[in-house]
């Protein structure tokens, strides 16, 4: 059973269909990529998973159980953690306290004997934030803030990690480190969903890749399969003369 499943999820805003009957699944112990050009509906479906955007139709299953109507904080307690494309860090707290407070929030609902301070120290090292531990988060660069969000998500010990563009704002080296970290997490058994526009990163770390274009799933497969798919090429580079997919033509027009 996959960790997370979307079943024919649609989201409509007024006359615009942001997500159109998308079904996909996120497996444990693997990294699932979700890519697509700007405005393809990636962030919208991501918010559906996270519980911040109710779908117009369709279902979301976590470990096989329907969570479509479950509130965001309850989803977190069932093992789901996420990051935000537009950062939602705790700007007035230090990097260390951002991670620590996440562990403390977890402790408050998990009611176990975990030690939030120790969790924070461990993650500072693991994510490579030791040098900026004391800085207030609204004073650090975007790339660093993204890593803070990742560390904060990990502090809740999730079984499913949803990452919304974690690579943007990171330099080449930081991206490499991020990729390695994600591979480690998957190897430890975590299910990871990676929404990302850095195609290189996606191709390197993902086991399966889903491609969205104007709200529809247009391809699914291994990175190599997806890369070779003409529909994906068209979605990214624009159609070559004469090869516009008939199926795509009517989309975008109501």
């Amino acid at each position: 059973m996959p960790a997370l499943q979307a079943e024919t999820v649609s989201v409509r805003f007024g006359g615009v269909v942001a997500v159109d009957r998308v079904s996909l699944s996120v497996e444990r112990g693997a990294i699932t990529g979700l890519i697509g050009p700007n405005g393809a509906g990636k962030t919208t479906i991501f918010n559906v998973f996270g519980g911040l955007q109710p779908p117009t139709e369709g279902r979301v299953l976590l470990d096989g159980k329907d969570i479509t109507r479950v509130k965001a904080h309850t989803r977190a307690r069932k093992g789901m953690a996420r990051t935000f494309q537009r950062l939602e860090v705790f700007g007035t707290l230090s990097v260390r306290d951002n991670i620590r407070v996440a562990a403390e929030i977890r402790k408050a609902w998990a009611r176990d004997r975990s030690r939030p301070a120790a969790v924070a120290e461990e993650l500072l090292d693991r994510i490579g934030l030791r040098d900026v531990a004391e800085s207030r988060v609204d004073a650090v660069p975007t790339g660093t803030a993204r890593l803070v969000e990742l560390a904060r998500a990990l502090a809740t010990r999730p079984s499913l990690l949803l990452l919304d563009e974690p690579g943007s704002g990171l330099d080449q080296q930081e991206t490499t480190v991020l990729g390695d970290l994600l591979l480690d997490l998957a190897a430890e058994g975590m299910a990871v969903l990676l929404v990302e526009h850095d195609v290189e990163l996606v191709m390197r770390v993902c086991d399966r890749v889903n491609v969205l274009d104007f709200g529809r799933l247009i391809a699914e497969g291994t990175p190599a399969e997806v890369q070779a798919d003409p529909a994906v090429q068209a979605a990214y580079l624009g159609a070559e003369e004469g090869d516009a997919d008939e199926d795509l033509e009517e989309a975008g027009v109501r």
């Binding site: 405005g39 393809a40 104007f214 624009g238 159609a239 795509l248 009517e250 989309a251 027009v253």
Partner: peptide, 13 residues
């Protein structure tokens, strides 16, 4: 700025 965003190829054309 990205007038093609989220639009079908025919519209973009």
């Amino acid at each position: 700025d990205e007038i093609s965003m989220g639009l079908a190829p025919r519209i973009v054309a």
